Amino acid sequence: MEKARELIVVADPDENVQSGFLRLFGGHFKVVCFSESDEALKFLKQNTATAIVFSCYNLPGRGGIAFLRACESVAPQAARVMLTRETSAEAVKRALNEGRAFMFLEKPCKPADLVSAVETAMAHHTQLSKDRALLERTLAGSVKLLIDMLALFHPDAFRRTGTVRKQALKLAGALGMKKTWELEMAVMLSPLGEALLPQQILARYRAARSLSEQERTVLERSPAQTRDLLKNIPQLEKVAEHLYLSARGFDGSGFPKDGPAGKEIPLVSRIVRLLTDLWYASPESGPDAAAFEALTINHRKYDPELLQVARSVLMDDVPQERQSKIAECYIRSLRPGDVLVDDALSESSHELVLSRGHLLTPTTIRRLIQFHQTAGVRQPIRVERHEVKEEDLVGTV
């Protein structure tokens, strides 16, 4: 398989500039050229991992300064370089301050200088990517801790995150998504809006029962509340927007009423919407033909291509890479790494304590023990237990 090459985007209407970039760097990098800003931005939105963006100062469309500034939000890890004949102090100042350019190069630029600039910009992109990866791992750990805590107080709302996350990653692989961090965060945080809703409203909505005007108003505000809670957290701004639009139907139905439709809805939002509804349509054992048939009845709400891919990859018979077995355990014999097959319920009232699909940790096992000591937990508990090699147990407690 051919190794993926770093992507360089050139936005300049000068054909000599475009041919020069292709000649100098086409053998080592993937170079894509555009003559105006809008098409370049549209491309960048679909290729957010772009390494370097070159732009001329007087770029047709929105202009080079505004174009580079827009690139910062759609491809934040790309090194942005201004390449222009404008050499005034004012032009340089605007490129660096307003366009947030990493580098300013004067036309005409010697090939050696351009090669040196690409090497420097590529090193800058590499460092940005490493910093972003570290930040994402740190933030993901914090979100996971937050979800575990919220699941203790709102188990009904957060019961699906473990199962849906696995489905989302499988679906992302089939779609060729290279970056899944935003998707994973969106799935994990997607029940946040439900946790804020009164249970009677949520139950009536999920059962497709009629809602009063007041109840519908409360329901309509839920996506905005989720977005407002998350948008002020650094690096979660896009996740907040994805969740805000995840209640939007592919046909333009749903919330928000003035939102986008069709492919204009972000892919992450479309996936979250599809998998959330699939969860509620599925039995305890997971998605089946009847669940997909239920979604097909309201097929206009879902991306048809996405629905087809989901049906294909989530109902295949390919065995898991790691074999597992189902074990019936009493609480004292649960192990970290076990995955709940069924909901853990209280012994008397059948209240949800911990949801199916939850990956057990020492913390959650202690939670089950404590709950059992006070209120009682129905036992035995069925778990999916992966085979663990003897050497993997060394150093564990």
Rank of each mutant, 00 (worst) to 15 (best):
Thr120Met: 15
Gly337Ile: 00
His350Val: 07
Ala172Phe: 02
Met185Glu: 10
Ala291Pro: 12
Glu90Thr: 10
Met177His: 08
Cys71Gly: 04
Leu152Thr: 12
Lys178Ser: 12
Leu135Pro: 11
Phe371Arg: 10
Ala49Asp: 13
Met1Asn: 11
Thr296Ser: 09
Asp258His: 09
Gln323Ala: 13
Ser129His: 06
Gly64Gln: 07
Val313Glu: 02
Gly249Ser: 02
Met315Asp: 05
Gln200Gly: 05
Thr48Ser: 15
Glu215Asp: 05
Leu211Tyr: 02
Leu229Gln: 05
Pro260Trp: 01
Leu152Arg: 14
Leu146Asn: 12
Asn97Ala: 15
Ser142Thr: 06
His28Thr: 15
Gly99Asp: 09
Phe25Cys: 07
Ser285Asp: 14
Arg221Asn: 13
Met103Tyr: 03
Ile52Met: 13
Glu284His: 10
Leu340Phe: 03
Leu152His: 10
Gln167Tyr: 07
Gly395His: 06
Phe153Ala: 15
Gln199Phe: 00
Glu39Phe: 09
Leu219Met: 01
Gly254Thr: 00
Glu136Thr: 09
Phe104Ser: 12
Thr126Ile: 13
Arg159Ile: 06
Glu215Ser: 01
Glu2Leu: 14
Val10Arg: 07
Val397Gly: 15
Ser116Asp: 10
Lys231Gln: 10
Met185His: 09
Gln373Arg: 11
Val115Arg: 12
Gln379Gly: 08
Arg311Thr: 06
Gln214Ile: 12
Leu368Pro: 10
Ser282Tyr: 04
Glu136Pro: 14
Pro155Ser: 07
Gly176Val: 01
Asp288Leu: 03
Arg366His: 05
Ile297His: 14
Leu245Glu: 03
Val10Tyr: 05
Asp392Phe: 00
Glu136Trp: 08
Pro362Tyr: 08
Gly286Met: 03
Gly193Cys: 02
Ser312Glu: 04
Pro155Lys: 03
Phe34Asn: 01
Asp113Lys: 08
Ile8Ser: 09
Phe102Val: 11
Ile65Pro: 12
Thr361Lys: 04
Arg216Pro: 07
Lys179Glu: 13
Ala89Thr: 15
Ser35Val: 07
Leu278Arg: 05
Ala117Asp: 07
Asn298Met: 11
Asp14Trp: 01
Ala89Cys: 14
Asp288Trp: 01
Ser324Ala: 11
Leu352Phe: 04
Val92Met: 09
Glu184Pro: 15
Gln379Thr: 05
Leu219Asp: 01
Leu192Ser: 03
Ser73Ala: 10
Lys3Ser: 13
His299Glu: 11
Ser222Glu: 08
